[in-house]
Design a protein around this nucleic acid. Structure first.
Lengths: 342, 342
DNA sequence: CACGTGGCATACAACGTTGCAAAGTGGGCC
DNA sequence: GGCCCACTTTGCAACGTTGTATGCCACGTG
């Protein structure tokens, strides 16, 4: 099948160890020996055996990304960036799906851990901080989103309170006063959604606008269909609403679709803001105003966390809480001018 | 760190081999011995070491998916299905991105191969059949799309000629006669695009419509921006066009956006059909008529191919050419009735 | 009683790699 | 000429697992 160090050694007339030295460029090897060995390597097309290295060294070079659903545009885009970032470090990315299922997430925490990957980037959905905390001492974990496991695991997230406040404030500056929020998830112990609600309420309070609980529409998942259903519910209930802040672009796109199909004009009668800045939103009609998290930074920082926990000496440093940047991107769904996309 | 067979064996007072037998349920083990061993396993939280199994058995339980871009909705959706399908077989999915780069694809063919994964699902973009063919005897490969490597590698794809013909024919039955195609890629040796052009032309010919080369708009990539640019070019050139068949939903969504932003009514003045049936299209305004490939079948069949090449005895069976099903899904971008989404 | 049989448990080796320690080689210096 | 040192190369062991072969025991049968 594929050549091993032994075969290369035989061919080059040296010991296995010397070939290993050439391959890993470790110890000093005499130039002519190195050349002879290299020749044998090329002829036999030798490639280091990953399994053996993994067994010997305890590192697989694999990192897992676990998200509720990889088909979701936000996670797809993030996965793309993580793959790229991983490659930069000679790692490879393994993708796991939790389907937003607690049991699944639990299994990942002590299943994939310690076995095949060197680290895990987890976007928890159903698991409470309490459960995340009891993660055993396996491989390093980085959480995405604001589920902070009581400071026991590293995590990377945007400042959702601030971002939600900015988004809502933006709607307020447009003169909207009856602003709904689509995306709370009271049924889950979900830090991210809770914080976005908080930011939304803060902005309303700052502006002296009343907070109407009936305008906070909870959703079960973050799909377009959930956004569409939520919007439909708002409209059917006759809630007079002139703007809506959606906790994800997916929800916003679904909401827009539902509103448009009922003849509601956007942004004229209804201004819409999303969250995530996925590509779909940029090309939707109208294009979607949104909070754009710095996804590159999230990907980079997440792998940085893993990298330095894998590095020597830092294994037990206290958990980090990294705040990634974000900015409000204003597009047609809130811009009066019915103009071009950003 | 994590317990090994040795430690379990010591604790249970049996040999390593016996523990192994318990774990893999292989040889016969006396009930009380089994119970004792199981107890030790539980107490020590023993988990089989993946690296050692990989080294010993030559199987890693990993399968790679290599696509140009995982952030693209079509590949994201496919990845989700593949992860699920892989899980059903106790495999895990590794994601690689080629960025549509030939060198990258080449490296994957003989790099990832034979080293860390048991199989590779590759969606080639830039590599010609000729190059794909010289794939060395590493791990099994399945190609997605219609790049068939001269019958040397398994591949799974929809019948693009037939699908493109149906899509175009649908536009013709609406009474459209000046039908453009967005998506040819003459600069690439890309079987898929070529076949879609072919189906498009066939439909025109069948209907006795003239084929106007200027209405076949090539694109460099399949992003929304490319579709938007192509549409803009068509409109700016003053080509009178009353329908367009786009080779992917992404292109179609970009094209719709460009048309809408210039005040072109869809489907009134311009009917649009896409290809892929990604979720975005279902929620676009108007919702997008498209060719829906049977993605579940593609995922299943791709892994089936790998599975039975990994199984005993079938390693050298001739390459398979699997045709996945597809259907035309008619939505608002071609339906006169400006109604609800499908 | 000797032998075969079947059930159960074990020993050994090997998968391919690398850390460690030590051996071999040659040259330079006193 | 002898000795030390630096440079280069090597052998051994171990990572954790499983295939193969074998050992041990009790039991039933001829």
């Amino acid at each position: 099948m594929t050549a091993s160090l032994r075969q290369v050694a035989e061919r080059a007339g040296v010991s296995i160890r010397t070939v290993s030295n050439v391959v890993s460029g470790f110890a000093q090897v005499a130039p002519d020996t190195r050349a002879r060995v290299q020749e044998a390597i090329d002829e036999l097309r030798y490639r280091p055996n990953a399994a053996a290295r993994h067994l010997r060294g305890g590192r697989s070079g694999l990192v897992a990304l676990a998200v509720p659903e990889i088909a979701s545009p936000y996670f797809g885009e993030l996965a793309g960036l993580l793959v790229r970032e991983a490659e930069r470090r000679s790692w490879m990315l393994l993708v796991q799906q939790t389907d937003g299922d607690a049991e699944h997430e639990r299994r990942l925490l002590d299943g994939v851990r310690g076995q095949v990957v060197d680290g895990l980037v987890l976007s928890p959905w159903a698991l409470s901080p309490r459960e995340l905390r009891r993660a055993p001492g396996g491989v390093p974990v980085v959480l995405l989103g604001e589920q902070d496991a009581d400071g026991l695991l590293d995590h990377v997230a945007v400042d959702s309170v601030a971002a939600a406040r900015e988004a809502t404030r933006h709607l307020i500056t447009l003169g909207r006063t009856r602003i709904a929020a689509i995306g709370p998830q009271p049924q889950l112990d979900n830090g991210t959604a809770a914080r976005r609600v908080e930011g939304y309420r803060q902005a309303l309070a700052e502006a002296g606008l009343p907070a109407d609980p009936a305008r906070e529409v909870p959703v079960a998942r973050l799909h377009r269909a959930d956004g569409a259903a939520a919007m439909a519910a708002l409209l059917d209930a006759g809630r007079e609403v002139d703007a809506v802040f959606c906790f994800s672009d997916q929800l916003a796109l679904g909401a827009m679709q539902a509103a448009l199909s009922r003849g509601v004009r956007i942004p004229g009668e209804l201004a819409v803001v999303g969250f995530d800045d996925v590509e779909d939103g940029r090309y939707a009609t109208p294009s979607l105003t949104t909070i754009a998290p710095d996804k590159e930074a999230i990907a980079r920082d997440a792998l940085n966390c893993l990298a330095d926990r894998l590095g020597s000496g830092h294994q037990d440093r206290p958990a980090r809480r990294i705040v990634a940047g974000h900015r409000l991107v204003i597009r047609d769904s809130t811009a009066g001018l019915a103009g071009r996309r950003s």
